[in-house]
Nucleic acid binder design. Structure first.
Lengths: 348, 348
DNA sequence: CTGAAAGCGCTTACAG
DNA sequence: CTGAAAGCGCTTACAG
């Protein structure tokens, strides 16, 4: 079955292609009766214009590209789900790419997507991204750029982020209120803004409660994965570092750490209270279930797409955007890894 | 910067657009010196033809659509990663859609993608999919269809699946060899082929070792999620059903069950050995780490895309394809939930 | 071996 | 308010 096209509609209705097209694109200069007639017929036969053909004139593809640094990752997946959901509402297509934490891959994807004439690129950069030329390139090509979660501060574009510093503060404060005084922090890599912010939030909380900051309690987890949690926990024991709490950069890291500590018969939450980050799907079924920070991934995805729509409409009107960074609130979810009465630390 | 186009190349090289195009599309009837000259220049200026424009003549978009029934799902994410990886190698674009377990959504996505003129639709159907018209529609429109994991047997198209029956057999046999005689099965919904096959594999193993099948040990988990694992485990205890082993439809379900059993001080693996399915990223960091079946998600994604390429090339040559179902092997990963010496069941 | 020309399915100035 | 015509950037029969 060959597809119905504009000229078929025109012929059937004894109108010109121009008129049909005007109706479809909501041009005002069409007689309202004609408009009705066209609309009705179009609906009846289920016609939709071939977008690839439209593109040739409009240069709009109704397609955006989404670049994720990691695929097997609950939070990024939620963002993806949010973008897909919102994009579909507006009949946009979403091309997906995964940079796999490699800047080279990221560059390749961007150039491929630009070549594909996407209307916008929505992305979280990799851990390693420390050059910006490929990001600026997007804007030079006249395409819109929206960044989320892992952003580059220096690039001027809409950004949707979590208030990581506040979230980390909440997580750490929760541990303090549960009586922890020797709180470990398994942080992320040094350069990403989100791991810096979480680290700062951790320090903010210590400061507020007059708990001395001890650099020997901070361990770096480059990839925020489970193995790093496990091996850094091991290091903590090997070094004989005292602790009664742990704030980890991700639930996966928290789980790895809990596993090691439990293997050494350390009681959780009695001897060690733990807070993770991101509310992974698995965390509530862990034993004990993991207290964590819930990040609104779906909402972030929706907002990312809406930021693009907004930017596009501003640009069309020739307006300059302002206040382009949106911080989404996160929420502490209290579970069993911190379920204890306020108490004096047991290991002190 | 306005994009360079075919006519620019032609002008610069004092050749016709036709010749340039022929070189780019590997037509044989071009002088080899001319070809070299064009290729070199094209490379130098980094020209790539505008694919949306090409489409108008070729009707090929170099874009495939991938439909997943669920987004926050380790296995489907791995498949997605595999498809993305392989597609990029062949310079294909991947549009992603998520049906969220809804047949209606699945239909919408398919019609949107068809309208977008994708070259193929690669998909796993939803749990609920029990009509096929929208699937057949894909083929009627002349687009290629490839199914994976959650397939419809009745549709004639390339299918990439895991040998679920064998995998479930392996899982159950492993429990039996660890001394289990009263093995619970937390199965998936009734209609999906994969949950039927896993159920059959479970029964195959019981039969091989002359262990009577007891229907009261089988519980249905519609969504194979953690809550269902938790509440079915509760049901097991409430009903006073005896057990010494559990084979669960997914790691998430296994985790939910383990949590409930541990809350009731049942020792794992001593009193209850557990095998999950899919090797979720979290499973190795669970305490105890979860024995599971590793499904080659990335490989499946790669194979799915290659099945499409293969189908496309066969179609071009006018050949009929045969033997279109590919079964990928899975692997038992032994971890702590079954780490015990062979022993008599303790609860007997 | 090369190129002029038609055409893919739309949109959009422009004329009437 | 309507339509004829040009054109978006390519590909591909066809002529030479």
């Amino acid at each position: 079955m060959s597809k119905i096209k504009l000229s078929d509609i025109a012929a059937a209705l004894k109108l010109s292609k121009a008129t049909i097209s005007k109706v479809l694109n909501s041009y005002p200069d069409v007689n309202s009766k004609t408009r009705e007639r066209v609309l009705q017929y179009v609906k009846k036969v289920g016609f939709e214009p071939d977008r690839n053909a439209s593109y040739l004139r409009t240069k709009e593809t109704n397609t955006v590209a989404l670049i994720l640094p990691e695929m097997n990752h609950d939070f990024f997946n939620s963002v993806l789900a949010g973008v897909l959901k919102r994009a579909q509402q507006s009949k946009y297509n979403v091309l997906v790419g995964c940079s796999q934490g490699s800047v080279e891959e990221e560059k390749k994807l961007i150039s491929q997507f630009l070549n594909q004439n996407v209307d916008a690129i929505l992305m979280a950069v990799t851990q390693q991204t420390n050059e910006f030329k490929h990001l600026e390139e997007v804007q030079k090509e006249g395409k819109l750029l929206v960044m989320f979660d892992k952003i580059e501060k220096i690039i001027d574009c809409p950004k949707i982020i979590i208030d990581d510093r506040k979230a980390a503060f909440d997580a750490t404060e929760h541990l303090i209120l549960k009586g922890c005084k020797k709180i470990l922090h398994f942080r992320g890599a040094y350069s990403p803004q989100i791991s810096i912010d979480r680290y700062l939030g951790y320090r903010d909380a210590l400061e507020k409660y007059d708990i001395p900051f001890d650099t020997s309690r901070v361990f770096v987890c480059e990839n925020a994965d489970g193995n790093e949690g496990y091996y850094n926990a091991k290091k903590v024991l090997d070094l004989g570092i005292e602790f009664d709490g742990l704030f980890a950069i991700s639930d996966l890291t928290a789980a790895g750490a809990i596993k090691l500590f439990k293997e050494h018969n350390i009681k959780i939450p009695e001897e060690l209270a733990v807070v993770g980050f991101s509310n992974w799907r698995f965390s509530q079924f862990y034993f004990p279930s993991i207290t964590t920070i819930d990040q609104p991934g779906i909402t972030m995805g929706v907002k990312v797409f809406e930021a693009f729509l907004n930017e596009k409409s501003l640009k069309k009107q020739g307006l300059e955007p302002e206040n382009r960074t949106l911080k989404l609130p996160s929420k502490l979810i209290v579970r069993d890894t911190t379920a204890r009465e306020v108490q004096k630390s047991l290991t002190s």
